[in-house]
């Protein structure tokens, strides 16, 4: 459903230009959860912002559901890393979640109901009347996830969604993501710099090289479900995959056993 071919992006021009993306090819099929990992500053965010239509790439094409992306696609939702700046402090939690639904032409009552339902799914049933800044960081990020869920997008983009929360909350949010994904059969593209996380939540892990970013690895994660923070991480297949992704991220050659 998402096809990216030979995507390039350069910031600035001349000798001072920064080549962020150096020809990316990627296909994501319906219902997949694809994690994109890479060292920091490798252009992951540039890629995400291009897919979201927030940035016009200098070359290549992106199509979503068959239509080329030249502005923000209609059925796409983004969960940003910086929840405190991505949620609007002047609106209540419920209003934040319901705001994008205006675009779908839903009336007030249905918007409200959809927001409540989404908040319930992320475990924040009682928080709708509160303001984002009255909640902890992890809860705020749940609100952003609820906002994306309520929107019922065909593709959900997550940009380092758990990068600003503590380790325990991070695990909770990872499991939450897996749960809502199974429930809605959504397509998710999750960007992270955390190798463990990418293997734990992903169906597929795509590894990007340092800028200008190119795809250096594309691994299928075949781990038994349902995944669980303790047992999955003990699984020899998990340990093996993690090492494999780690090598790719550090720019080492793929291990011969894994490549076969």
């Amino acid at each position: 459903m998402l096809e990216i071919s030979n995507l390039t992006h350069t910031y600035g021009s001349g000798p001072g230009a920064h080549h962020a993306l150096g020809g990316i090819d990627l296909r994501v099929t319906q219902g997949e959860l694809v994690c994109i990992v890479g060292p920091s500053g490798c252009g992951k965010s540039t890629l995400l912002r291009s897919i979201a239509g927030l940035l016009k790439p200098t070359g290549g094409t992106i199509t979503l559901g068959g239509t080329p992306v030249d502005r923000t696609p209609d059925d796409l939702a983004v969960v940003f890393q910086d929840y405190s700046r991505s949620l609007f402090p002047w609106m209540s939690v419920a209003d934040n979640v319901a705001l994008p639904l205006r675009r779908k032409g839903m009336d007030r009552g249905r918007r409200r109901a959809a927001a409540e339902e989404a908040l319930e799914q992320v475990g924040l049933a009682g928080a709708s009347g509160k303001y984002p800044w009255q909640l902890s960081g992890g809860m705020q990020q749940r609100v952003s996830i609820a906002r994306a869920l309520a929107y019922r997008p065909s593709l959900m983009l997550m940009d380092e969604p758990f990068g600003s929360v503590d380790a325990q909350t991070r695990e909770d949010l990872e499991d939450l993501t897996l749960r809502v994904r199974n429930h809605h059969n959504m397509t998710i593209l999750l960007i992270t710099h955390d190798i463990d996380e990418s293997v734990y939540v992903g169906d597929r892990v795509v590894v990007l090289a340092k800028a200008p970013a190119t795809v250096v690895g594309d691994l299928r994660v075949d781990l038994p479900g349902p995944r669980d923070q303790i047992t999955t991480r003990e699984n020899p297949a998990f340990v093996h995959l993690r090492a494999e992704v780690g090598r790719l991220v550090r720019g080492m050659r793929s291990h011969p056993a894994a490549a076969s």
């Binding site: 979201a52 927030l54 983004v78 940003f80 705001l99 675009r103 929107y151």
Partner: peptide, 20 residues
Amino acid sequence: LHLETAAAFGLSRGQRLTRV
């Protein structure tokens, strides 16, 4: 990021003005 969030969820010009 406020503006990008509004853009990513496809808020119209008017909504962006009055809500953000």
